[in-house]
Every structure is written in C-alpha cells, then in structure tokens.
C-alpha cells in the first residue's frame, strides 16, 4: 500500500505540491488527470524519490514503512518502479544491459523483449534516437524485468502511434495484473483474481486513451499542485471533456 499524507513539496524555492493526500491500496490502480504544469510528473518523481523534489511537510509510506527520506535506489529495491516520458540516453549502455540491470538476476531478455516487440533494439544504446513509441516500449520492457509492486506511469500513451497503443495498453494491463490473460488462463473467477491482485499503479494521462485497455479503480485530478475530486476515472474524464479543468478549481476552492 502507498500512503501519502499531507505532502508539501518544493522544487528549488517554489512549492509545487501542497496538501497531497493519497492512498493506493494493494492491487489498486489510480489514474491521475490534470492540465500541463499542474504537478503530475512532480508527484511521480517525489514518490520515486528524486532528491530535487524536497518534501518539506508530510510523509510517504510504502508497505507500511516511512520512505520519505529513503534514497531512490532503496525505493526501487522495495518495489517502486517508474515508466518515464523522456528518459535520458546513456551512451554505450546497451538496452539489453539496462534490462539486466532492472532484473537484478538472470533474465531471458530476448523473450521479454519479444512481448513488446523490441528485440531489434536490444543492441542499441538505451534511448539513443528512440521515437516516442519506442521509448514507451523500452520503459515497459524495463518495468517487466524489474517487476515492481508499485508502478508509476508518466503519460504512457503520449507519442505512441495507433498501431502500438494497444500493445502498450495491454502490456500495462498485464503488468498490473489486469489483463484478460490472467482470467482466461487461470481457473479462478474474476472476482477471485481481483482479490488476489497485488500490483499497484499510478498512471498519468491527458487523453484517457489508456483507459480503453487498463481498468482503473480511482481517478484523481491534480490542479495547481493540489489534488481534488477522487472519483470514477471515466466520470472524471467525461467531466473534464465537458467542462474542462475549471470545474476542478471550484472543487478545490470548496474543500480548502
């Protein structure tokens, strides 16, 4: 379980997140909406443990442990993983090596890569000249190898062409134990599978396209560094579609 309590975060001298409370229970996936610059990526980076994002109030608990001051690598080892929108290129580090790093043990890199149609990129330097869609598939491949319990997805559908959006969507669903394969292959009922689900997800999306492939338990809107409106993700999406984020401002004004 991830618990965030009354979080205030500074980037440089600026407060970028304020009064953030969030709880992602075991097996739950949440979707995070919000306009550009509202702090969505900052929230993910803070959970991941990027030291530039300074927590000045509140705390973050993961699996019952206070991780607010924990360095990133230890958070990764505890089971937090992130799919980046614009990861850096590391010259000379081959993609297959990066996948091995993520796995931390012997892993059939080629087999994993074939699931996201990425075999041809394994000998390339990680992220070097990758297109938007290639970055997404590379990030998912790394997460597959890392197999974390809490996965943070920063706009997984942005820059992905139509051909690949289904692949990306289905892979995320599989990572979060929300794909049909689980249901079909197993003997268990869907309800049983849902109860046994352990993987947690937090997905940033602008368009909501990802919801066509991944079911989510809750949706939240981040606006100007504050969370509002915990609700059914589809409902939020249609509300934003109709009334825009202006409605969220009214929500925040009402609560604080």
């Amino acid at each position: 379980m991830l618990q965030i309590e009354d979080l205030r975060v500074k980037l440089g001298e600026k407060i970028i997140l304020e009064h953030i409370d969030m709880e992602i229970g075991q097996g739950e996936t949440h979707v995070l909406f919000g306009p550009n610059g509202s702090g969505k990526t900052s929230l993910l980076m803070t959970i991941m443990g990027y030291p530039q994002y300074k927590v000045v109030r509140g705390r973050i608990l993961f699996k019952g442990e206070d991780i607010t001051e924990l360095p990133m690598d230890e958070r990764a080892q505890m089971g937090i993983g992130m799919s980046y929108q614009r990861p850096p290129t590391i010259n000379g580090l081959k993609t297959y090596q990066m996948v091995e790093i993520c796995a931390r043990e012997e892993v059939d890199v080629k087999d994993l890569a074939s699931r996201v149609n990425f075999q041809d990129f394994l000998e390339r330097d990680i992220n070097a000249g990758f297109s938007g869609g290639e970055i997404k598939r590379s990030e998912l491949l790394q997460l597959m190898a890392q197999n974390p319990d809490l996965m943070l997805f920063d706009e997984p559908e942005s820059g992905v062409d139509l051909e690949n959006i289904a692949l990306v969507g289905r892979t995320i669903a599989s990572l979060l134990q929300r794909d049909n394969d689980h249901a079909v292959k197993g003997q268990k009922s869907k309800m049983q599978l849902k109860l046994e689900r352990t993987k947690m997800g937090l997905i940033i999306t602008h368009t909501g396209h990802i919801l066509d492939y991944v079911t989510a338990d809750k949706g939240q809107v981040l606006y100007d560094g504050r969370l509002s409106c915990i609700s059914n993700p589809r409902e939020i999406l249609s509300c934003i579609g109709k009334d825009g984020y202006e409605e969220c401002v009214r929500c925040i004004a009402g609560t604080s």
Partner: peptide, 13 residues
C-alpha cells in the same frame, strides 16, 4: 539525470 535514471532502477549511486 543519467545517474538518477539508473538509481530509479535499483542501482546505488
């Protein structure tokens, strides 16, 4: 940025 990317995959600094 590169160091942190790798740290977020579990490597120490």
């Amino acid at each position: 940025e590169e160091i942190q990317y790798l740290m977020s995959r579990g490597l120490s600094e």
